[in-house]
């Protein structure tokens, strides 16, 4: 077990290292996306299950991991949908800041209730030029069924970033976009209505 614990990060390092070379094949990139999700999930599990650090330290570490693994700008822009075009630069800037804060808060409180589940990356496929869908399963500790979690990973500027999480077929980004669109529509088509809500969250 202990050997396996070290073997996995080692393999990941080797895998990640191989992507630094130029002219990588698409297949390698797919494997790279898989390794990226796997290493992110294992890192998260490592400190989420670490009893020796305080709750606040855990949250801080988790926020840092989220910020480094998720492309918040892309997710935020997607979530704003067609209202991105109708908003001005100041609104966009404020929106992206508020959005990032919201996502980080939501996720760090969600994963704060971590009960020892494990994540198993099982497959992946390329989707277009830059995107990869990595399919993983969250395994419960006791009884109960596993949950399929798909990660949309984008390879951009030599880096992998998560831009969507799809839990049992439900996309976080699509749900958020629908939520925001409804808020704006019911507020008379004003992006400021959404900003006011995000400010008060």
């Amino acid at each position: 077990m202990l050997a396996r614990k070290f073997a996995v990060p080692f393999v990941l390092l080797v895998l990640l290292g191989s992507f630094c070379t130029t002219n990588v094949q698409a297949g390698d990139k797919t494997a790279g996306a898989e390794a990226f999700v796997d290493s992110m999930a294992q890192r998260a599990i490592d400190f989420l299950g670490d009893e020796s650090i305080t709750h606040d330290q855990r949250q801080a570490k988790f926020k840092k991991l989220l910020k480094s693994s998720f492309d918040m700008k892309t997710i935020g822009r997607f979530a704003l949908g067609r209202y991105w075009r109708t908003s001005n630069d100041a609104q966009r800037k404020e929106y992206l800041k508020l959005f990032e804060n919201m996502v980080v808060e939501v996720y760090s409180s969600r994963f704060g209730e971590y009960k020892g589940q494990t994540v198993e990356v099982r497959s992946s496929r390329a989707d277009g030029e830059t995107d990869f869908i990595v399919t993983s399963y969250v395994l419960p500790v006791g009884s109960g069924s596993e949950i399929q979690v798909d990660w949309r990973v984008r390879h951009k500027g030599g880096q992998y970033k998560i831009i969507d999480v799809i839990v049992a077929g439900v996309s976080m980004s699509v749900t958020q976009r629908s939520d925001f669109a409804s808020v704006i529509q019911r507020g008379g088509g004003e992006v400021n209505v959404l900003l006011a809500h995000l400010r008060s969250e």
């Binding site: 939501v106 409180s109 969600r110 049992a168 077929g169 439900v170 996309s171 699509v174 749900t175 958020q176 976009r177 629908s178 939520d179 925001f180 669109a181 409804s182 808020v183 019911r186 959404l194 809500h197 995000l198 969250e201």
Partner: peptide, 21 residues
């Protein structure tokens, strides 16, 4: 807790979940 308009979030989730099934 993660949505602003809970009704809209449930509706979007419903459509996606049914589609996945």
């Amino acid at each position: 807790s993660s949505s602003i308009d809970y009704y809209a979030a449930v509706r979007a989730t419903y459509y996606q979940r049914r589609d996945a099934l």
